[in-house]
Amino acid sequence: MKTEPNVIEVENLTVAFGDFKAVDGISFYVKRGEIFGFLGANGAGKTTTIRCICGLLNPTSGTVLVDGKDVSSHTAVLKPRIGYMSQKFTLYPDLTVRENLLFAGSLYGLRRKDIKPRAEELMRFIGLSQHLNEPVKLLSGGVKQMVALAATLLHNPDLIFLDEPTAGTSPITRADFWRLIRTLAQNGKTVFVTTHYMDEAEYCGRIVLMERGRIIATGTPEELKKQFFPVPPVELVFTQPRQASVREDLQRLNLGTAENFSGGLRVRVTDMEGFKAYAQTREGVFTYRPVAPTLEDVFLKAVSGRNAQ
C-alpha cells in the first residue's frame, strides 16, 4: 500500500457559505487503489469535501489536487475519470434501468452500442440483470441504490466517490454493497466512501473522522483504535441485580465513561489501575473483561474528547 502514489491530495481546504465554514482547513491524501473512509455525523462537511474533489464546488481557500493537477482548473480532464454517486437519488424513476443507464452513458459521450454490453456486464456484476427493463420507481430501495452504483460505474471511472451509498438500506444490501466496493478496490479503483455506520468503516483501508468541518482523527482502523485506546475498553457484567451506583462511582472517581449494554456496562476506561482497584472493592457485584475497541468507541471518544476541550 505504502508504495502506491497519492491520487488525491487535499491541502488546507476551506469552504465557507457566508459566515458558516462547512469545511475548515482540512488536509489529507488518498492513495491509489485504497478504500478511503470518510466518517462523521450529518453536517460534518463530508459531502462538501467530496463536491470539491469532484469539481462541483470551488473551495474558498486551499487546494485539491488529483494526480497532481488542480481540480478547479482541470475539471474537463478529470470529470470523465470520476464516478460520483451523490447522496441524493440521481436516477429518473419513470425510466427503466436500461434507459437510465443509456442516458447516464450519453452524458459521458458513450454510444448506445458501447453502453449496452457495458450495462449488461455491470448489472451482472451487481447481480441484478433481471431488473434491466423495469422502471426504476418499481424497484426496492436497496436495488435502486445498486442501480445508482451501476450508473456511477458505467463510464469505467478510476476514482469512485460514494456519498452514503448504504444510508437507509437493509443489512443484506449493505453487505452486498461492501462486497462490490472491495471488488472495485481489488481491480485497482480508488474508492472514496462516506458513511455514518461505524461498523462499515472497519472495511476501509484508511479513515478520516470529521466533525463540524474539521478532521479529528485519521489513520487505518487499527491505528485509530491503538491511538484512542491505549487502554482497551472493558465490558462489565453484573453478577447481582444491576446497581446504578457503579456507573455513578465510575464517573465520580473519574475512571471512565460507561454506557448501558445488555446485562451490564461498557466502560471506556481512562485509568486502568484505578479501575482495577475499584473493581476489587466491589468484588461479587460484577465481573469484567477487556474487549477490543470498535470504531464506534473511537468515534465517540474522539468527539467527546474534542467537546471536553
Partner: peptide, 8 residues
C-alpha cells in the same frame, strides 16, 4: 447533481 458531475 448527476448532470453537473458528468463531463457535460
Amino acid at each position: 447533481e448527476k448532470l453537473i458531475a458528468s463531463p457535460c
